[in-house]
Amino acid sequence: MKQSKHDLGSTKNEGMENVPMEERRQFLKMGLAITGIFAGGTIFSAVSVIDRVFASSEEFTAQYPYKPHYGMILFQNRCVDCERCVAACAETNHVPHEGYRTRILMKEMPDAVGLKREFIPVLCNHCNVPQCTRVCPTKATYKDPVNGIVMMDTSKCIGCLTCQEGCPYNARYFDEHRQAVDKCNFCFDTRLSKGEKLTACAAACPASCRVFGDLSDKGSDLYKAIHQLERPVWVLRPEAGTKPSVFYTKDTSAVAFK
């Protein structure tokens, strides 16, 4: 609920903006009282819709509830599955051999016209309506109130794996060494909090496939890559309603090499 307070002033129209704050609270309380224990999580997750971020390409005037609002856009056509990102991630974050926080998927279309293969990097989407944090019984996974990263507090994880079921992106794994579910946290503990500007995967990519940054920073490459109409921008599994902070695009212009 902390998060909702945080961005009430800046949310986009949810059809309720004219309702005074007090009335809204009253209404929500009433709803809670009525539905009570039967509703369990449902009513709370309905409330969290006000955290929704309109970070799709259509929404130019997006307001982001976090500062910095970390996110990433992947230029899907640039990925060649060299997997330097996967290796850099594993080394930086001590990902066990049996797990991974990012992975490259391969799509093949032998009968396609022209290019017959593409690679699709996947990682935690740092959703703005995360399923995983809603279902966690002990708040072992939570959305960071400052930067919006979906974090793990491994000491609280009971290992029920409901978050793994809830995640529509298969971004979570059980780490037997840490005895907790673990996941990508945009290298927050290993890099960002130490002053690095990029995640390990983004830094390791030789083809600038991964552009990491602050979604709310209008000057950032990330912001510019998303808020434009010339190239399509999409998210994975939009029907899951998770409002990811990770976006995908393809550019037809030439790739610039470092």
């Binding site: 709370f44 969290s48 809603r134 002990t138 708040k139 994880c157 029920c160």
Partner: peptide
């Protein structure tokens, strides 16, 4: 459940009211 003893502690001191597992 992988670490059941943590459940006994954190279900009480860190409840997540949006979680159906917690309510259940």
């Amino acid at each position: 459940i992988k670490i059941p003893w943590r459940m006994a502690i954190y279900n009480v001191i860190s409840p997540n009211l949006t979680s159906n597992i917690w309510w259940m």
